[in-house]
């Protein structure tokens, strides 16, 4: 009964929805892009980044992935552009750019 959410949308007939609207899967929200909410966009200046990772836990949108102890590129599909990461960076390695594009 595991759910394939690509088969569920606003045109799905009632027989095609999951029982009790339960979701038999985890983390399906990854398929929903919230990046388009942005009015400002964080941009990483890689030369300045010292990989202190202080920007990672302050992200409300889990949009700074960590791989092998290092932060990766911003997940622009989901980043909402709140600017917390830029304000906590001790090395000014993140700047906020106006608009949705990095």
């Amino acid at each position: 009964m595991r759910t394939d959410i690509t088969k569920i949308n606003e045109r799905t007939p009632w027989q095609g929805l999951t029982e009790g609207l339960q979701m038999f899967a985890g983390g399906t929200s990854r398929l929903f892009a919230t990046g388009e909410w942005r009015t400002n966009t964080p941009v990483l200046i890689e030369d300045k980044c010292r990989q202190c990772l202080l920007c990672v836990p302050v992200c409300p949108d889990s949009s700074i992935p960590v791989l092998e102890g290092k932060r990766g590129a911003f997940d622009y599909d989901h980043c909402k552009g709140c600017g917390i990461c830029a304000s906590v960076c001790p090395f000014d390695a993140i700047v906020m750019k106006e608009g949705i594009e990095p």
Partner: peptide
């Protein structure tokens, strides 16, 4: 290993279909 989520917020596009399934 088989997570389940119970009790969603549902927009109108799904809620009426869910009620029909319950009625069925």
């Amino acid at each position: 290993g088989k997570p389940v989520a119970v009790g969603p917020y549902s927009i109108s596009a799904y809620a009426m279909e869910a009620k029909k399934a319950q009625e069925d």
